[in-house]
Design a binder for these strands. Structure first.
Lengths: 138, 138
DNA sequence: TTCACAGTGGGGAAAAGTGGGGAAGAATGG
DNA sequence: CCATTCTTCCCCACTTTTCCCCACTGTGAA
């Protein structure tokens, strides 16, 4: 659980920072997540995602909509000298991130959650961790 | 969310400006979007689109119609020294852009929306962002 | 206790965004 | 063809936001 200061800044835990490639050079892209959370992509991971987006057709309405949804709130941003990233107000609002934030490093990106929202999300999932495990991993 | 002043000018967010190629030289083409919004193409992207249009058949009524729809309101325009672009009244009317505008950088162009219209557009879609994501991205 | 590192807080310069005056050019009417 | 009005756009000035930098606190290890 980490704090968000009045300027909307979040310190990236140093444990996580270690896993971010050096080529990302402290540059990230924040955007909305698929659930009610934010995704923080190191720039190199983001570039991969972006080139996938470019393969979509801009003449297909569903594709357009998806591209918009991802890019609408996307912001490039660099860590400051204290390894903090600042989260634009609109994104904080989307994920309802106020004073505290739950930071989860997934494989290719980092997720930011309102701690309460995250707890509710976990509870709302009917399937247990074990049963997902057995289904997903084959 | 950005403002439109009384003269119909819109500041391009500097974050977006960075992604516009230098060869575009602050020159854009505004035209109507496929939805009820406006498309703002950097001139180099516009030239690509235009050469695609040239490949359409002017003997096919559908093609003619499409070409007209795009070109009818298209207008070339340059950023002023404050990096603003001015949107002709007819286009503002088409997209119902009044005092406020939502600016979305998609990959090859920039979209301008009336904020309310955009919200309605998002809501009107039956399929969730999450489910499009899992379908579209593989 | 001291050092090092992680995290927090805030001041202030620089950049971004907004508003409007007025010259230059285009359109309209006589 | 000239005069008047309207529009466009260039430039200056003000406000707001961003972000860079410095300082402080707390914790754990030596």
């Amino acid at each position: 659980m980490y704090s968000v200061d009045e300027k909307g800044r979040v310190s990236l835990p140093s444990k996580l920072r270690k896993y971010v490639s050096t080529e990302a050079n402290d540059t990230f892209v924040v955007t909305r997540g698929f659930e009610k959370c934010l995704f923080l992509y190191p720039i190199d991971e983001w570039n991969k995602l972006e080139s996938n987006l470019r393969n979509l057709s801009s003449y297909d309405p569903q594709h357009r909509r998806f591209i918009r949804a991802i890019l609408e709130l996307a912001q490039e941003s660099q860590l400051d000298s204290q390894a903090r990233i600042s989260i634009p107000p609109e994104l904080r609002e989307y994920a309802n991130i106020l004073n505290e934030v739950r930071i989860i490093g997934t494989l290719d990106k980092i997720e930011l959650w309102n701690p309460k929202v995250y707890e509710e999300y976990k509870i709302s999932q009917p399937e247990s961790y074990e049963s997902i495990a057995s289904r997903v991993m084959r």
